[in-house]
Amino acid sequence: MIPSAFDYRRASSVEEALSLLQSTEDAKFVAGGHSLLPLMKMRFASPGMLIDIRSIQELQSIRRDGNRVVIGALCTHRHIANDETIVQALPALAEAAGRVGDLQVRNRGTIGGNLAHADPASDLPALALLYGATIHAEGPDGPEDYPVEEFFLGPMTTALRPTQLLRSVSFPVPDRGSEVYEKFAHPASGYAVVGVAAWVATDAGGIIQDIRVALNGVGYCAYRATSVEQALFGREATEELLEKASHLATEEVEVLEDVFASENYRRHVAAVFTRRAIRRALDKATR
């Protein structure tokens, strides 16, 4: 539980951070440190240098840009959970950020670190998928945008290049429907054993006009449960149909197993929480 030796540098601008990264072989950015430092303490990661990006001012703001909300990489979970713009425009994101770990974790952890780290049990990846976010990166060759569908590649693996900094994430604001995040929190860490983000839009007769369901914690990375979406699309969500559709939540993925939850158990809970999430989204007043 003691990390191996490393150098520490603090960057005050994106340019400085990028050039420091280039200058050293095995350097890593550190933002909130709440994913990286635990790994270093267990010696699962041993970077030679940490580049602390926390004092880069320009990555710390949340702003509305037309029908999108742009969130700086260094915004903390707590900032996001309490930000008025986000609570109004992206309520499920606020809900998820408010349920990350515990208060200390929410005070330190950042959205940039969360998405860049891509822990399968993190909460925010499913929200990025749900809203169809775009990840904005900056590298030695200039800026690059990644649609979220192409961002998460596997456990702790993203499309971000090792030379790039995640600068911000922009979320399109849905113009209809309603969305929620339901989470089965791990009893110790608070990470998602299962996390389900659901967005539904219905017509006056209760027919589902549009639906998105995204899951954390279940597969090797966050994913859209397209089978569930298809099973419900264009239909009325009766209890029976919802029950049946929810069981499709793990159709497309290999389900994780860990010390706490077996594959079968996780599959079961994924269905339960998918049903609960969609039900609550349906019951919630729409935009």
């Binding site: 791990h186 009893p187 110790a188 860490s189 010390v259 706490f260």
Partner: peptide, 21 residues
């Protein structure tokens, strides 16, 4: 909650407080 779990090889799999509840 609390359980120290050994796997079939005799490895303790609950060696931090993220697994020992």
């Amino acid at each position: 909650l609390e359980e120290l779990k050994y796997d079939t090889e005799g490895q303790l799999t609950t060696v931090s407080l993220s697994d020992y509840l």
